[in-house]
Amino acid sequence: MVDENDALRLILVQKGDTYTQRVLTHYQFQLQVYEAQGDTEQERLQSAVAIASKQVNTVIDWFNQPSFRIFLVQLAENDYLFVWLAHHWIGDGSTTGLIMDQVFRYYEHPDAPKPETDTYLHFLRDETAFFQSDKGKKQLAYWKQEVEGYQMLDITKAAVGAPASGYDHMYQIDRSGVEQLAQRYHTSMFNVILLAYHLGVAYLLDNPDTIIGVTSANRTSKRYFRTMGYIAHSLQHRMRIREEDKLADLLEASKDTFSKNMANLAAGHYYDRTQFCLTYQNFVAGAETSEKQLEKVPIPTKRSVEQFFLLVFEGADQLALAMVGNGLIYTEHFLESLKGYMESVVALLSQQPDATLAQLRAYYEKNQ
């Protein structure tokens, strides 16, 4: 699997004041197997989780080895924890599913044929050719103009109250209000959530100029549908708001901005300006494990990144909001406040579309 996928052989190389990635021609992968200790099944499981947590929280030497780690922790004769971790730069959300597919396909069928897909290096060469083309230069100029003058947000303002645990937090909000607004304004529920997210971040961080990165799977090309690597592009959605702006007008403006940005998605590579991200209906390929009995085991980790992700999943009656971020920065109070402010946006926009941002703030603070 490592030999077949360029992204699993990436190492970091320093060049002057910057860094680049190099694909190793060959990497001799060695599978580490650790043995859990204990007299009972529960003791061995606790030992295995502790071993896995220690390994997961050990920094990978990106300059001398690829940016991923796979290892096993043995619980019993035919019982193991399989642990996979990687830096985000070697793969987007679909990559984990693809890796699990390959691992278990080769495990069950060692002579299985290689998947028919182009490599990550092919993708990067296509990207380079695009940026050098007239169309690519035009789109890159568009994004530079979109982010001109933008100042990074002060996320220390999110550290209010006791720290969060550092794990993902899941909340639910009523779907019907979001759906009704989408129908009324001839848009999608995604665009309603995007507006509410922007306004919540702007309020809580006290900044009227925000950029939220909207991730796109961008895997419609059959050439790269099953290619491991960071194929996704980040769309930079910027909003600049004023106290007198009306909610309905902001939704229309946000919708128009999103449409223009989608038309220029291919050149959206300003990850350093993205502190908050939104992924809507995030689906990951499932592993082909029909002959295996698998059970997920949570491994405690220390999340150190400063980026904050909001993942939204559609349910029949509810929208599930998964909030992911460093618990020392994005505290429980921040998470609850963000959820509450987003609900206030939906409620007031439904009841009083001509309400201004000043009225929205008063509405939110009154209902807290």
Rank of each mutant, 00 (worst) to 15 (best):
D174T: 01
P115M: 09
T95Q: 03
K114N: 08
S176D: 11
Y167V: 14
T119Q: 15
V160S: 12
Y106I: 08
I173Y: 07
N191V: 13
L195Y: 08
Q151T: 14
Q151C: 15
H109W: 00
D101R: 11
M152I: 13
L195P: 10
Y150K: 05
E146N: 09
R184P: 00
H169A: 06
I173M: 12
S133M: 09
E108C: 01
D126F: 02
S133P: 13
H186C: 10
K137Q: 15
M189T: 14
G93M: 08
D134N: 14
V192E: 02
L121F: 02
L195H: 09
R175E: 14
E108Y: 00
A158D: 05
L195E: 11
E179N: 13
G91P: 02
Y106S: 02
H186R: 11
Q183P: 05
D174Q: 03
L199G: 07
L121C: 05
K138S: 15
S133W: 09
S94K: 04
Y142T: 12
R105P: 11
F104S: 04
Q102R: 05
D134I: 14
Q102H: 07
I193L: 14
F131W: 04
T96I: 11
Y167T: 15
E146K: 06
D92H: 01
T187H: 06
R175T: 13
N191G: 03
V201Q: 07
I99W: 10
L124E: 06
W89R: 05
E148C: 05
Q151Y: 12
L194R: 06
G200Y: 08
E127A: 08
T187P: 01
R105I: 13
P113D: 08
L153R: 05
L153S: 08
D92P: 00
